[in-house]
């Protein structure tokens, strides 16, 4: 690990201020992804701003019947929260399908959104990677790319976003609330929070430098049946090859979001409207414009089959 200086932030605005004052700084919350990357010298912050003692660990009802989740609420607590279990089952299920018990005890809501890809070439510092080192190329394009993205990819990057939680947050139309060093607050819809790679795969979110996430807000509950179905190479403690988050509400409205397909949680409005026509129709709309490699073309069939399983689970 490269050497760094360490400070404990006194407030969210002060944390943002410290990050602006130290261009090499990173916030550290759970640290489960950041420290892993620091040990491999993929992340080399010169200054760490520890935000763990800022509070921001509560889940509270909002005026319009939703929930405001503090940025530092741990994944375990979010999944186990009574209102989340009752009203946002897809979020509980997504969280519980990710990582291990130890990691969920530490990982935070904001940190989960900000985790980096697990693309093996991003992790291998002897290989080119436009995300790790802009301009060096993408070793995944012609490499081992079985688990890479098929939607929204670019010639510079085909990495996926690894989070399960983010897929559920996108499905639920959550909003990310932030603060900057001058105290300015803003709300970023999940749809706009993560970016497609384009020619700047190193820029992964809509956050400005130093901008600090304070909470994530869920709109009022949708009701209905919530399903999160994750396909992976082993049955526990593995990242998704593909995942489907779905809500079938009581009015017959449907919505679908996908993990393991893209650089961000993947959701297509046109596919949401096709729930009544079944898995094949939803898959076709969701995967319009897919760009596959020889190794990951199976994700097309897998998406349709996983959707079929979701529809069957809904009927069960």
């Amino acid at each position: 690990m490269k050497a760094f200086t360490y400070e404990r932030a006194a407030s969210p605005a002060k944390a943002a201020e410290a990050a602006v004052a130290n261009p090499g700084a990173k916030f550290i919350a759970g640290g489960t992804n950041l420290l892993d990357l620091m040990k491999l010298q993929i992340e080399t912050p010169t200054h760490l701003i520890d935000v763990n003692r800022l509070g921001l660990d509560e889940i509270a009802a909002t005026r319009d019947g939703g929930l405001r989740i503090g940025a530092l609420v741990r994944n375990t607590d979010l999944a186990a929260h009574k209102a989340v279990r009752r009203d946002y089952g897809v979020l509980s299920r997504a969280l519980l399908s990710g990582a291990s018990g130890q990691l969920r005890n530490k990982a935070t809501t904001a940190g989960n959104l900000l985790q980096r890809t697990r693309c093996p070439y991003f992790y291998d510092t002897t290989k080119p990677c436009n995300k790790r080192k802009p301009g060096t190329g993408c070793a995944a394009l012609n490499g081992f790319n079985r688990n890479m993205a098929i939607m929204g990819t670019s010639a510079d990057c085909i990495a996926t976003h690894p989070s399960d939680m983010a897929v559920a947050m996108r499905l639920l139309d959550a909003t990310v609330e932030t603060i900057t060093s001058d105290g300015t607050k803003r709300a970023i819809p999940m749809a706009d929070f993560h970016r497609l790679p384009g020619n700047t795969p190193d820029i992964e979110t809509a956050l400005a430098p130093g901008e600090f996430i304070t909470s994530v807000v869920l709109p009022k509950p949708l009701g209905g049946t919530h399903i999160y179905r994750k396909v992976r190479d082993r049955t526990s403690y593995a990242f998704a090859v593909l995942s489907v988050a779905a809500v079938f509400d009581k009015q017959g409205e449907t919505r679908f979001a996908f993990g393991g397909l893209a650089h961000k949680p993947w959701r297509v409005e046109a596919a949401d409207a096709l729930g009544s026509r079944g898995a094949a129709a939803v898959a076709e709309a969701a995967l319009a414009g897919a760009k596959t490699t020889e190794q990951n073309a199976f994700k097309i069939d897998l998406t349709q089959r996983t959707l079929a399983a979701v529809f069957a689970q809904k009927e069960a």
């Binding site: 360490y6 550290i28 759970g30 640290g31 489960t32 420290l35 892993d36 760490l48 520890d50 763990n52 375990t76 018990g101 130890q102 990691l103 005890n105 530490k106």
Partner: peptide, 13 residues
Amino acid sequence: GRRINSCLTLALM
């Protein structure tokens, strides 16, 4: 009171 991976956290935290 909670189990964590002690390798993925800094003592100072």
